[in-house]
């Protein structure tokens, strides 16, 4: 069977669901970040698969490049915030960081 568009879409759908599960279930802030990276990569696979099978449209590649740029910026800032949380609380469990809760 020829490898077509739906094969790549299936991989991206499974990867997206795994990332979503990780984001929701984990307490560790860095684990949440890793789940987020999985979701972003699933979106990127979709972009590039549609670009390839829709007539080698280069716009899909451009969108994927901007997603990668935003992921890099987001990872840097998020890890800086995580380091700050660790300095103040001595842990990074995001559901215990609730000092502003009334």
């Amino acid at each position: 069977m020829e490898i077509g568009l739906t094969h790549y879409l299936f991989i991206s759908a499974i990867l997206f669901s795994l990332g979503l599960y990780g984001i929701i279930t984990r307490k560790h802030a860095i684990m949440v970040l890793m789940g987020l990276e999985l979701v972003l990569n699933a979106a990127n696979i979709n972009f590039i698969a549609f670009a390839r099978f829709g007539g080698m449209n280069i716009e899909g590649h451009i969108a994927a490049i901007f997603v990668i740029i935003l992921a890099a910026a987001e990872a840097a800032v998020a890890l800086a915030i995580v380091l700050n949380i660790y300095q103040n609380f001595r842990h990074v469990n995001i559901d215990e960081v609730d000092n502003l809760k009334g």
Partner: peptide, 9 residues
Amino acid sequence: LIIFGVMLT
């Protein structure tokens, strides 16, 4: 970056 974050926290 992520591995550094894991090791530092």
